[in-house]
Nucleic acid binder design. Structure first.
Lengths: 235, 235
DNA sequence: TATAATTTGTCCGTATGTATA
DNA sequence: TTATACATACGGACAAATTAT
């Protein structure tokens, strides 16, 4: 059973994406939404908060709640990033599994993943393609104690979607460190680029709702087709 | 007069940074905070929300509110990015103004900044240094109708701090598109790097609380010392 | 294993303040 | 100035997850 405010937020988002408010670029007022969804003001405001955090709307006191105009297409919105499949729903996502084996966490990995040395870890290398163009190489480590079962079938799709399909394993937090660097020969070949070319790198730690780290991954992005979008609110 | 929940949030953040909760890595409970600050539960929860969005704490239902452990130092946290001065309070920030002139918005710039063609614009090029090492070249455009007055003195410090010192000009929203690219000869020389090296680029639009764009800027970062940190919540 | 206590999450109602139109 | 619409703040009640007993 989902929370009311989440249901309302999802519904409003759907309507925004369907273009229902494209003419005025303005949402109904809070009071109107209270009537429409027959919930309290608090619940509407919680729903609105979700949409504001996602970068979908900008509420302006005394005026109304406006659609946030975004200029950049083909961007990965860092706010709702839950894998390529959701980021590019209208594009063809391809996946090539380059490596899949079980390893044990050494001292360094154990520190990063906040687990004990020797913890069994799924190690995976994947090349992801968007519309058949190499997009990113993912080097990822999953804590096997938290994600016991993975197979090739799952690896070819969305690993996150699989893990969070278990209601006990809700995605909680993701830390990402983003930087640029020089592409090495190995990665350049896989991405179809040249050694020495730039690359956009994202190093990620993903935690469940309980705060435990279940995934650590390093994403080596094709700089020619990767753009991240960060929408901040200071209100 | 600042809102209560913001005052409370600032106070708790200060205490966190001072190391007050370093031993348990846990905040007082909501009920305790209600007593301490003598405000309603709602107000405390609003304050907590601010800290969660900033990536400072992780609340876990049934358990408590824990400090979020961050691994990466020297990162710019995209969540609270308000200029280098605040991002690196303990480091020496240097600024070299390379260019400062008034221009008129052409069609392209007018589109980007959502203003009329011919609008007067401050055009500024700055090199920013952190601990005397070149950190970023900023090419920025300020709408002169919204930011009438700038001078060299201001440009050598924090432009944002100056603008938002006017209570009528509160910073509202910032959109950032982040990507990697190849450094050109001109920028490489200024940053003390080589043409062809990678660079981390951030293209930004900053809006006031009223939603109007007052600043558009392109930041060419030194890839050797720039890392962005993105903390996401999916709860 | 089961129960109770603790702690955060959701939801409701109401009142007043503040910015905009 | 007045009306509109979002922002802040207070209060209470119950649900859900975790921790202690």
């Amino acid at each position: 059973m989902q929370a009311k405010y989440k249901t309302v937020a999802d519904d409003i988002e759907k309507q925004v994406l369907s273009g229902l408010f494209s003419d005025t670029r303005k949402l109904p007022t809070e009071d109107e939404l209270i009537e429409i969804y027959a919930v309290s003001r608090n619940t509407i405001r919680n729903a609105i908060d979700v949409l504001v955090r996602k970068g979908i709307i900008i509420p302006i006191q005394g005026s109304g709640m406006f659609l946030r105009s975004l200029f950049s297409d083909d961007c990965v919105n860092l706010e709702n990033f839950l894998g390529l499949t959701k980021a590019f729903p209208n594009k063809k996502i391809g996946t090539k599994v380059l490596e899949f084996k079980e390893i044990e966490a050494d001292e360094k990995l154990a520190y990063i993943m906040q687990c004990d040395v020797g913890t069994p870890i799924h190690y995976i290398e994947r090349l992801r393609l968007v519309d058949n163009v190499p997009y990113v190489i993912e080097y990822s480590y999953y804590n096997k104690l938290l994600v016991p079962y993975l197979n090739m079938e799952i690896l070819r799709g969305s690993i996150y979607a699989f893990i969070t399909s278990d209601p006990k394993k809700q995605l909680g937090y993701v830390d990402r460190v983003i930087r640029a660097d020089v592409l090495n020969q190995h990665d350049a070949e896989i991405l179809g680029l040249k050694a020495g070319d730039p690359t956009l790198i994202s190093e990620n730690r993903a935690m469940l709702k309980s705060g435990v780290i279940f995934d650590y991954s390093i994403d080596i992005h094709n700089y020619k087709n990767t753009k991240f979008l960060k929408l901040s609110n200071f209100t």
